[in-house]
């Protein structure tokens, strides 16, 4: 064998060994490196307030996708109108991930008084899914803010009053007239069509 032959062949072998070891130390494909995750976590648009979410629900925002990550039992008991249920423990199932594998809908994740929504957000963000927000304060806070809204106290404040009127209106929208605290009937589950994430197709080889 000639010298050049040996150099190239040994180069190939060494290259394949290098490749083999380089695979171990890198994060799994598609995952977001820690620095980027930190940046995403600290960005302002990560949370959505109860009022803002309510407004979007009432306006029938077609891009809104609400995901309830609590247990199915809790979900059937009471949930936000239009919310779909994906319990946190099942979030990594393929069928469930399909809801997040798109970049059109804005997804609002919520849970109740636990960090479940936060955990779901972290997992989904690390998987590279986009447009994810968390309902600030969870369902409890939403219920208190909107359904149990109290008239503003103290001297008249136009802004506070408008907010109160909005909340009162929303209360009607959600089917609770005059501040009734009992839980309403299960909401119909709305299925939002899934738009699959499409990557730019590259014209292929010889075909």
């Amino acid at each position: 064998m000639r010298t050049t032959d040996k150099i190239v062949i040994i180069g190939l072998l060494l290259g394949s060994v290098w490749l083999f070891f380089s695979g171990k130390n890198t994060p799994e494909k598609g995952e977001i490196p820690p620095g980027k995750l930190h940046e995403l976590m600290l960005q302002k648009h990560r949370d959505i307030s109860a009022d803002e979410l309510t407004e979007r629900i009432i306006n029938g925002d077609p891009l809104l996708q609400i995901v309830d990550v609590r247990d199915t039992k809790e979900y059937e008991n009471y949930t936000l109108s239009g919310a779909i249920n994906i319990p946190l423990k099942d979030i990594l199932k393929k069928d469930n991930l399909a809801y997040f594998d798109q970049d059109v809908l804005n997804t609002v994740i919520f849970s109740n008084g636990t960090s479940d929504a936060q955990i779901a957000w972290n997992i989904l963000t690390r998987l590279g899914y986009k447009n994810l927000t968390i309902l600030k304060g969870g369902l409890n806070n939403w219920f208190e803010t909107i359904i149990l809204a109290k008239p503003p106290t103290g001297p008249y404040d136009k802004e506070a009053d408008e907010l109160y009127q909005f909340r009162k209106g929303a209360r009607v929208y959600f089917g609770v007239g005059g501040g009734i605290e009992e839980e309403s009937a299960p909401k119909p589950k709305v299925r939002i069509p899934i738009i699959k994430h499409k990557k730019k197709e590259v014209e292929g080889g010889c075909s």
Binding site: V8, L12, G15, S16, W18, L19, S22, G23, T26, K29, K199, K200, V202, E203, G204, G205
Partner: peptide
Amino acid sequence: FTAALTGAIGLFLLDNYGLMDIELTF
């Protein structure tokens, strides 16, 4: 074989070091 393997080793090295995403190619 030398060409195909040079290509494969190079491309997956680039992919592993985050310099290119094989999934976005043809």
